[in-house]
Amino acid sequence: MKQFINVDSLTDIVSNSVGILIILAVVSLIHDNSKAYQLEIPIEHQSELSPVFIIAKDDSLIVLDTDKIFTNAAMQATDGAAGGKRIFPLDYGQLFGQIDDDHGIMFHAQDIEGSEDWHHFSTLEKNNSGLQQQLNKIDPKKQFAYFFVYDEVGESNISGSGFESFRKTREYLKMRYIKSGWKPVDSDNPASICDVSFSPLCKYLPSYLGSS
């Protein structure tokens, strides 16, 4: 047996619902496209804190164990492998090193996939993850985090390859009262560690708001 119903109330409901949905869709589209954003304005400050260096690339991060890296680099230099600005393996996080008078020791991160020393930034949300453990070792009274952030971008991406991981990690560190600083790097201007006596560019400063 066929069921019949009066048409008036139904058309009313249908037209109202459709109208509201269309309005909502239009409003949300307009609203999304004109969101104003105030840039955060952290300013670099001179500091007595010592930097803990981190490289951010392809949504992953590596906390540099400088003792280990410098030991490995010194061994390579002793063997002559690091002479003449030659690029040599650092045996750490699939990084390659290069020694230069102006930049000190430079780090080339090429294919980082599969390395255990690199951590995806999403692991920050997992309790006691490798990345969390390394970041938690930073003492906010003595140290700050300094990021070398890759700004190179893939074709379908709108963000630098290290931007998102840097932003998320900076937020995590901020909650732990750890200051951070950063600079963009790429294959032509790789991450480097040197002493300020080499060049005035060898400065690694934390950036924070004046009120922090």
């Binding site: 496209n33 004109s34 969101k35 105030q38 304005i41």
Partner: peptide
Amino acid sequence: HSPQKIEMATELEQGYKVA
């Protein structure tokens, strides 16, 4: 597919410091 488009302000201040 169309991530939020964000507009940034041109005049930025932080206390007496002006960008």
